[in-house]
């Protein structure tokens, strides 16, 4: 009859503690032995989904007793590099630009000569920067000068956080420099005019694509060629057209094995196999299927119809990533000066 009422959550609490300690940690340990983490940039979701599956299958055929599960995380290239720097356990990084991997190398996560360890400057696929416009190209956009016409809104992400955005920016810069009488000053003026036409600055390439494709913002999206082709052919067929400008940049997103992490995880062999696989015929074909330009000339030729011809210049012609980063994107650099006012 006499009963002291007490809190009934006692059971719940105890159960939660037990469940927590039991469940929160094992997956982590288990993963260290059988998994491989590829930290990648934004527009490669579909590509690496395919590659990961295909690679795991191939690995299982040759290493039947130790299957591997590859996981890939995505985000802005700079943000992803930062995560790895702070301790994200990446075995492999496949980022939007070499500079982000250089930073990791500077902090000792991998050798500074990493770019020479794989063929083609460690770049399995290239891409270019193109214009994605609304179906029928209602604003009649064909070349870089068209972007700064009155009434044209341009969607591009923030070069401070997005690798893709830096390529966009540098494509515009490189074009401006190559105009008759082009100098750093005329290029700066052009970019200042260009960013005056940008209504929102997303943090990543995929965010910008979503702004343009799903939210219907802007008249033209500056995008990776692969991202633009994906949008036109797979996501919004008959809604968009691709405009390839007469001259654009050759984007070279590189890959690397993160030495320090693979040593800690004991995944050196599988990580090495993974990056090598990207350069294999099969890997190259998967890349082409996802609108990344294969570096293998034979496979590129076989997919000529997917990749329109255009003149390109590369990052080296602009002085290389270290210079470009310092001049343009560091605090107080050219981007800050054209965007802040």
């Amino acid at each position: 009859m006499v009963k002291v009422q007490s809190i009934t959550r006692r059971g719940l609490l105890h159960a939660s503690m037990a469940a927590g300690t039991a469940m929160a940690f094992p997956p982590l340990r288990a993963w260290a032995a059988t998994g491989l983490l590829n930290v990648s940039y934004d527009p490669t979701r579909e590509l690496y989904q395919d590659i990961d599956r295909s690679f795991s299958r191939q690995w299982a055929q040759t290493h039947g007793n130790s299957p591997v599960q590859v996981r890939t995380s995505h985000g802005g290239s700079g943000a992803q590099a930062r995560s790895v720097l702070e301790g994200a356990p990446a075995d492999v990084v496949t980022l939007g630009l070499a500079y982000d991997i250089d930073i990791l190398a500077q902090h000792g996560l991998l050798a500074t000569d990493w770019q020479g360890r794989l063929p083609h400057n460690s770049t399995p696929f290239t891409s270019t920067i193109v214009f994605l416009v609304r179906k029928g190209n209602p604003k009649n956009i064909h070349d870089w000068p068209d972007l700064i016409r009155d009434g044209v809104q341009v969607i591009t992400p923030n070069p401070k956080t997005s690798g893709g955005a830096r390529w966009n920016y540098l494509a515009a810069w490189g074009w401006a420099l190559r105009q008759p009488g082009g100098t750093a000053d005329t290029a700066r003026a052009y970019l200042k005019a260009l960013f005056a036409h940008v209504p929102v600055l997303d943090t990543g390439a995929r965010g910008a694509t979503n702004s343009f494709v799903q939210r219907g913002l802007g008249d033209v999206l500056l995008a990776w060629e692969d991202e633009a082709l994906l949008a036109t052919r797979d996501i919004g067929p008959d809604q968009f057209d691709i405009v390839v400008p007469p001259i654009t940049i050759l984007a070279e997103p590189p890959v690397a094995v993160v030495d320090r992490n693979v040593q800690a995880h004991g995944t050196t062999a599988v990580a090495q196999a993974y990056v090598t696989y990207l350069f294999s015929d099969e890997g190259q074909k998967i890349g082409a299927r996802h609108y990344f330009r294969p570096v293998n000339p034979t496979i590129l030729d076989a997919n000529r119809d997917r990749f329109p011809d255009t003149a390109t210049f590369d990052i080296a012609s602009l002085g290389g990533w270290t210079t470009v980063q310092k001049d343009h994107f560091a605090d107080g650099g050219i981007f800050d000066s054209i965007y802040s006012r």
Binding site: W31, G35, L37, R71, T72, S73, H74, S83, A88, P89
Partner: peptide, 11 residues
């Protein structure tokens, strides 16, 4: 959570 997660699917 976004800052400290690393966004690794499945983990």
């Amino acid at each position: 959570v976004s800052v400290v997660s690393g966004h690794i699917p499945g983990l």
